[in-house]
Design a protein around this nucleic acid. Sequence first.
DNA 1: CGTCATCTTGAGTTTATTCAAGTGGAGTGG
DNA 2: CCACTCCACTTGAATAAACTCAAGATGACG
Lengths: 203, 203
Amino acid sequence: MVRLAQYSHRIAVAPGKTFIQEGEPANDFFIVTAGHVKLFTLMPDGRRQITGFGQAGDFLGLASGTTYAFSAEALGPLSLCRFSRTGLGALRREFPALELRLMEEASRELVQAQRRMLLLGRKTARERLASFLLEQHYRSPTKAVAIHLPMTRTGIADYLGLTIETVSRTMNALQREKLITITQVTHITLLNLPALEILSRGG
Amino acid sequence: MVRLAQYSHRIAVAPGKTFIQEGEPANDFFIVTAGHVKLFTLMPDGRRQITGFGQAGDFLGLASGTTYAFSAEALGPLSLCRFSRTGLGALRREFPALELRLMEEASRELVQAQRRMLLLGRKTARERLASFLLEQHYRSPTKAVAIHLPMTRTGIADYLGLTIETVSRTMNALQREKLITITQVTHITLLNLPALEILSRGG
DNA sequence: CGTCATCTTGAGTTTATTCAAGTGGAGTGG
DNA sequence: CCACTCCACTTGAATAAACTCAAGATGACG
């Protein structure tokens, strides 16, 4: 892995900074080394769809042709490893294992994209929230039932295809039903994992 | 390409047949050679989300780990080329160009998945229908404004995250507004491509 | 020509949205 | 240390978009 350094640069990104702009030439490829990012697309009137949240270890920029198909913004302090796309070809020849790893990552993301189509196309607000909380739980390094949400209610809404009001109401409804506890706005404890799982699958 | 034959089998699938079942071991990988397929996932209560339609040249089974993440059904008479997943590794070693081709296809699908998240999460029924019709137009071999839909209204509804009634009403509304003509149920002519494009983008 | 499945249309309902106040908590300055 | 401010979040009431339920119409096929 020593030789990797010649192809990559470590960069720090300020909170809130949009470091990938939809439609711009896709020259680089990134790996998140610390922090959280949101990937999103915008409509002319401002409607926003967050297509994914990335955290340490995630690849950004796989899904592009010649221009980026999405924008990316740092949710907090962020560290990235940047690779030039032109260099990626050379990298692949030098590290054949990377080829396989890239393919695995693409397949994983494709499966996740299909799950999200089901969520966005067919699930109710309650089911979306339950699915979201379980996903955050599953992705947390500790797998503890106490989870921290790095994004705001607006972020959750734009991820789940809802409004912030619906997210807020539904979260509080889940708390009233003793499925979760909202310790702070960004700190949720999952009280009943099996019930949340049943809810997230739609019964 | 001569040697490819030793890894693949051509198979014919009857209309309506489900030839990939979600959750079953992902032993095979397919390429559509003729006809149309729908890829979908189901919820326990029967809610269905079609994640994509495939036609000649499309790859099926990219997005899987050890088990298939979706089901696939033939929309009409269908021809496939089947590859064993275990053999795919050998194939890749023998045909390095395949590696790149596979990666390109995965990237293309990922970009399309992001577009569909925006559609399912943020677009209105009218915008979804316009996007759908333009996609069918774009994917047709001839690129003619007269398009043929290989799927039923139920298929369109399950693809767009709507009900058949909403699809029917919206299609007829678009016809009343002179954006399309419904020659037959499955034959649509796009009368005003620029207007449809503006509509599909949301203004 | 009849049958069945698919599609269309209408009326009423539901879910989530919109619009409009309020509430709360973190950071700032007096 | 306490108001003040701002932003995010919550809550309520009214609205709208799409859904559900229920007939009909259409059309493909035997």
